[in-house]
Design a protein around this nucleic acid. Structure first.
Lengths: 227, 227
DNA sequence: CAATCATACTAAACCGTCCAGTATTGTCAA
DNA sequence: TTGACAATACTGGACGGTTTAGTATGATTG
């Protein structure tokens, strides 16, 4: 269970040293959300180091005092932000996971998933931002990167692998590898097109990408090729 | 043709304003290479902003004066470094591209390629570093990201697509999409395992990954599934 | 004599702290 | 219900100490 730690209530108590709490996201103050939203934009634009706390405060429309009353320091603000995004991402992903209904044909399920992923990632910029920040700062925050893998990537891959394993059509395929191929192709596509700004350089229609991917997996599953 | 621009000769002329040249990599002084190698390590460890010019100078074993005599400023040093890495990467990739011999069976060719990619990226840390830096700084240096796509990703994808198109075994597959699936699966695998430190969290043997990937593409190619 | 080194310097930015003052909100007595 | 008061949240600005990019100066080396 992920909790947003390094978060402190704005209660400036007598000692002027407010203590911090590990709060579940529901407990988070409205102001904290405003700060995180502003921080996201600034971190997105400048990266971790170049994003100054002054700019974050300005971006969030909050005084620096308030900023520091909610978050102890820059590093823990960043960690809280990533955890916040991670939770949002998780909710989104688990929201769009088409309940692996064994009735509907697998190609429809897969297409539905792929469509949802590409649509969601294209519409919701913060998901790609999370990916980019995580990769970019993975050396400075290795533990955070592992948390990201554990709470976002692993459940998704496990879910996919479970689905591939459950369908007899794919019994000749390695479920774990198929999950990697499915997710990896889409993630790589998103990285090239949206993060590295390669849309005009290596253009590829998302529908064409999805069609080809679905066809490849379906065809491989139904093949009687010997290993 | 890629040239290492933003590079200036160490000639500190009278006006103390040495002019810069666009030099082909062969013209690059030995010292410039030393500086770039040191810069790579520091940028890798600290990221762009947190890598100070003092640390870079120290890491390269060079005085700061010399540093600035070869590179106008930090930004152009970084651009030169990326271009330098891009060229190295290109040479490596084009070096390991198994000359698309139509004689050898496709599965062997693909396996050879996948093996070479994974082996090379695991052994040569700087390739992954390049990937990580490019993604992490893609908002600060969008043009650099495009250059990366144009000079590294696009040739690789084109090369793969051409190969898929040339082999009758894959005539039922979309060559461009197959190239994306092939490269994307491997890149995503490398990102998860090596960049995001997910080896222990979502373990997957590289050979198993390659086997599954090759099988999937081969089986899909030989399938007679109707679209 | 060109290249390099070592060092010191400037001007600016940064983080985190601190504080005087201002809204906002609630409590409680009259 | 109203008015006084207290607690809390927040602002805005200033500050110390540190770090940064980039420049300048003079010594050293081959």
């Amino acid at each position: 269970m992920l909790t947003v730690s390094h978060f402190r209530t704005p209660t400036v108590n007598a000692s002027n040293r407010p203590k911090s709490f590990a709060l579940s996201p529901g407990d988070m103050t409205q102001k904290a959300g405003v700060i995180l939203a502003g921080a996201l934009e600034v971190f997105t634009t400048y990266g971790y180091t170049a994003a100054s706390m002054d700019r974050i405060a300005a971006g969030a429309g909050v005084s620096k005092s308030t900023l520091y009353s909610y978050f102890h320091d820059k590093e823990r603000l960043f960690v809280s932000l990533i955890q916040w995004l991670t939770q949002n991402t998780n909710q989104i992903i688990f929201g769009l996971r088409t309940d692996l209904d064994p009735e509907t044909p697998p190609d429809q399920v897969l297409r539905q998933m792929a469509n949802a992923v590409l649509a969601e990632f294209s519409a919701n910029q913060s998901l790609l931002t999370l990916m980019r920040l995580m990769i970019g700062e993975s050396e400075r925050f290795p533990d955070l990167a592992k948390t990201f893998v554990r709470t976002v990537q692993k459940p998704l891959l496990d879910h996919l692998a479970l689905y591939f394993a459950s369908q007899p059509q794919f019994k000749s395929l390695d479920p774990a590898v198929s999950a990697r191929i499915f997710a990896g192709s889409l993630v790589h596509y998103l990285i090239i097109q949206n993060i590295l700004h390669g849309r005009d350089i290596v253009p590829l229609d998302p529908d064409r990408m999805i069609d080809g991917l679905i066809y490849t997996i379906m065809a491989a599953g139904q093949s009687s090729l010997e290993a």
